[in-house]
Design a protein around this nucleic acid. Structure first.
Lengths: 227, 227
DNA sequence: CGGTTCCTTGACCAGTTTCAATGCCCGTGG
DNA sequence: CCACGGGCATTGAAACTGGTCAAGGAACCG
């Protein structure tokens, strides 16, 4: 994707666990990620944590700042990162190109979050983890950072737990089961997917359309009949 | 909020359970909702369903169509609806006002989804339902449709289940417990909240910042120390 | 090489689901 | 006017997925 080179204003680097933004802070620039990973999260007073977005190389972090919004959730680096700063111009000086570019990124964010809502709301532990790995692989692939069936995966099991809404212990057990089933191979922060289709099936993602012949009416919510 | 009257092009009405959009359809207009409720959802082949967005009066449905995207998930009306159509102009004819207006709506969507991710990933049944009711009340209040401590709530318990990622049976039990606890009063599609603060506390929402004095380091994930 | 972080495993527990059945409410039609 | 039927709410009992607590071991880093 052509990037917003016009507005580029220098670069920024972050170390692991360093904050890219804190809650209620007004960022003065959007970061285009050239290298490294980060995540957005919510932390409860009692220690529960939920990660609500993953930022991979090629992503904008975060496009919604472009209209002068405050950051609503903190963002921290997972790995060392190198990014390009894209200044947030005042209202009068925003080009159509600027809007369209970030708009596209916003829409992608919404779609990914919607997929995640489905995952957290209705999928089993194995399905959630499979979906996460599929999504990560696809995104790494799309940005040219996957090789053969492999890509980097710098997440700890605790991170995976806080993305998928599970406990680290259960993530561990589920990963082991998936390894045993030959679905994945995961060692030293490196992910190998021997059979992508199998993993996608395990994730129920992307969702294959239900067969219109075999799917009987009674197995669907019957108030979805289209009025 | 000033609406995009400029681009308004007639109105559209829907009956309960009628589709506003189907998957992979390219909508020719955005609907500004004047009256009625709708939701976006994902349906699995095996019957599981997850609702990923709720559209209430005053909302745009869906701002992301404004760039010519396809609908990625179907949307159906909950109640009878009346809406105003807002044409999606081709790339060359989009005003800055158009972009800013819908941008704001997109960002709000992202924030609501992020809150929902936290809810589905880390909250108990009671917290999720409390959060849902808080959010609905707030949104109805903001659009001038709440009176005293009350507002309409045209959702069935099955709908609530598919929003909160629970089973209808458990929603029923949890609602009863909340009624018993005096947190809510819910009858004939009408919601009364005797004590908004109590309900907000039950929802852990909006999240009160953890007390910097009493929150010891060891009860927080210790890799969030800011690098 | 010492300390910290992360992974792994076991035993037990709890919140939520599943299955099944009953009853209510309400719109429809005889 | 009342019987019927469908969707929805309610309840109980049993099962299960995933959570909690606890401890040992491997891997990593300065």
């Amino acid at each position: 994707m052509a990037s917003l080179a016009v507005a580029a204003a220098g670069s920024a680097h972050f170390r692991p666990h360093q904050y890219l933004a804190r809650e209620n802070e007004r960022p003065e620039a959007i970061f285009r990620i050239d290298e490294g990973w980060a995540y957005r999260f919510h932390l409860f007073g009692d220690g529960r944590r939920q990660i609500t977005a993953l930022f991979l190389p090629g992503d904008y972090c975060e496009p919604q700042w472009g209209l002068g919004q405050c950051a609503t959730q903190p963002i921290v680096a997972i790995t060392a990162m190198s990014t390009t700063r894209i200044a947030c111009p005042p209202a009068g000086e925003r080009s159509n190109e600027y809007y369209q570019h970030l708009w596209t990124a916003l829409v992608k964010t919404i779609e990914r979050q919607a997929d995640w809502l489905v995952s957290l709301g209705r999928k089993s532990a194995r399905e959630r983890i499979a979906q996460l790995l599929c999504e990560i692989y696809d995104r790494m692939h799309d940005s040219g950072r996957a090789y053969a069936q492999q890509c980097a995966l710098p997440l700890t099991q605790l991170d995976i737990a806080d993305i998928t809404g599970l406990t680290p212990v259960h993530v561990n057990r589920t990963l082991q089961a998936m390894r045993l089933a030959g679905l994945i191979c995961l060692q030293s922060k490196w992910l190998t997917i021997p059979d992508m289709d199998a993993l996608r099936r395990a994730a129920r993602w992307p969702t294959p359309a239900p067969d219109p012949v075999s799917s009987k009416a009674e197995q669907l919510p019957n108030h979805l009949d289209g009025g």
